[in-house]
Write a protein that binds this DNA or RNA. Sequence first.
DNA 1: TGGGTTCTTATGGGATATCATGGGAAATCA
DNA 2: TGATTTCCCATGATATCCCATAAGAACCCA
Lengths: 155, 155
Amino acid sequence: MAGFVSHFTNRLDAKGRVSIPAPFRAVLARDGFEGLYCISSSHCQAVDAGGNELLAEIEKRSEAFAKLSPDHDALAVALFGASENPKVDGDGRMTISDMIREHTGITDQVTFVGMKYKFQIWEPEKFREYRAEAQKRALAMLSGQSPASSGGEPV
Amino acid sequence: MAGFVSHFTNRLDAKGRVSIPAPFRAVLARDGFEGLYCISSSHCQAVDAGGNELLAEIEKRSEAFAKLSPDHDALAVALFGASENPKVDGDGRMTISDMIREHTGITDQVTFVGMKYKFQIWEPEKFREYRAEAQKRALAMLSGQSPASSGGEPV
DNA sequence: TGGGTTCTTATGGGATATCATGGGAAATCA
DNA sequence: TGATTTCCCATGATATCCCATAAGAACCCA
């Protein structure tokens, strides 16, 4: 499988529920995580979501510091305090919590963006802006470092 | 096998399906990838498609950055947010998504262009234009012109 | 070499399954 | 007990599966 890829926009219903895109559910099922792991992104108005693979990545971060140390505590609060573990109902829907609403500005629609090992949850319009920016940035990053691709993509 | 070579133009049916050329299907079968991996090209109105070999190429690009960092996120959105993982039905057909339609301008016909480790999906007329340009460029490169002459980004 | 035969391939279309979404009813919480 | 959450079912739209067919390519055998 190719992990979380592509992006989808779904509607919130009157009860605050939204369908997680079916292809993403398939990836989560394979990952084996119970429900969904969510954590507010520290550098943009989106929420990171995923399963064990994302969680492992987060944990790796705090492992760099000795447990019980002030640094570790601070990081743990920042990371896990900003986390949630929403349930997924039998029809593959999650409810958007107040925390997610506040952090993302989501009102009636949700955009899910695949990022391979995780996906992000965005307010659609904010995502469009971020995406345009990300594309510019990606182009700059890739032409800066990749060995052979600056002068026109090799066939 | 020689990878994806030659090019083919097939018709879209009323349901938005199109047959992937049989020689390409043979290459994909050997590659072993589930379905098809597609990603919008950042520098022309085409979609890159392939299997594990293409995916590995894409993944290599983001490996240079630490996961969860702003750089990695931006790259992942640009790359994997613009990717898809379409199924291939029992008759070797894929459906052309809205994302591909918008990016390529495809309406009723699709041109598949072999590029060895991947192939591209084009609107036929746009491909003809691009091809004429590419041939000129190739000629210049082969006859030893300075690579700087590739200056004008095509399309 | 020629001509018939079989396979493969692209394409069409009907039947079926899946998905996103809505809403009622039961369960849970405060 | 009132409000919210969870579970379950309904529905329309879309996607998928499966089979049919026609044209062309490959094959075969005299």
